[in-house]
Amino acid sequence: MKTFLENLKKELTKLGFNEETIAEILNDHKEMMQLALDEGLEESKITEKFGDPEKIAKELKDIEPDSKNKNNEYKLIKSFDQETINKFFIKLISEDLKLEISNSNQFEIYGKRVKLNKYNIEVESECLTIEKKNEKTFGLFSFSSGSAKFIIKVPHDKTLKEIDYKATSGDFEFSNLTSENLKIKNVSGDIEAKTIKATNFYIKTVSGDVELKQSEIKELTISIVSGDIDMDLVVIIENLKINSVSGDTNINSCESKEFIYNSVSGDFEAKEYYPKNANLKSVTGDIEFKNKDKDKNINVVSKKTLRGEIKI
């Protein structure tokens, strides 16, 4: 065991692993080997059972982010002139996506661990499409070290007509963005948006969380099953509609004209939120407004709850 661990240490050092990682890997092997020896494995059979230290080190090297693995850095995939794009159509599976401000007047698409032959990335009729090709590959073959990530850099001050985003488990994060229409559909990925200006903003997700901050939106609709909603400093000019099954909703310092809330078992809590009109419906979830200004009135058009509590 001693020789094995020494060799493993030597190989790991050779491949540039840091000390902490080496110690951890050696510890793990020590633990496994001791158990094997306790069960009666002969010292001489250690390599046979645990493999060749050189091979183990190489195998581990591929998955260490601290090693110089080129796949772990963002690379520019394509760039397009600012005038050529008005819409985004994005259809992904498990890839994370982030929208950022570009330093140039171009749209730039960056990818990390992206296998380009698996995606359609093109611009047609002013629409940028990033789409995972529909193929019958299956996870077992596409074994890779981690799921892919995309960044789209959007030129500063660019107003988009539409963003249509669909994904299964990838997270979607965007900030400093202006778009007339925003349609986001996700299953388990989280959605995080900050400083957004939009006319119509529609979010639908099953178990992903939604976080929205410092934004100005004309119409906002959120439909969610078990994910939580967090809203902070969002000005909604017209209506805010929230449909939630079991997720909790937290609203802090937001504004809207109408507020329509429907929930089964999720709880709702608002601080400093004074919608003009409110329609509140919940089966067992609680609804509570913790507003400081008692003079500002919320006109409750309707409220219904079976077992929950409504406090305003």
Binding site: L35, A36, F50
Partner: peptide, 26 residues
Amino acid sequence: YGYMIINNISQHLDVNENTIYPILRR
């Protein structure tokens, strides 16, 4: 724990232990 996983799997499949540890780590 690691060795338990290795043992459970190698009861059914002919696997070299060194394939499992990197998977656990990754």
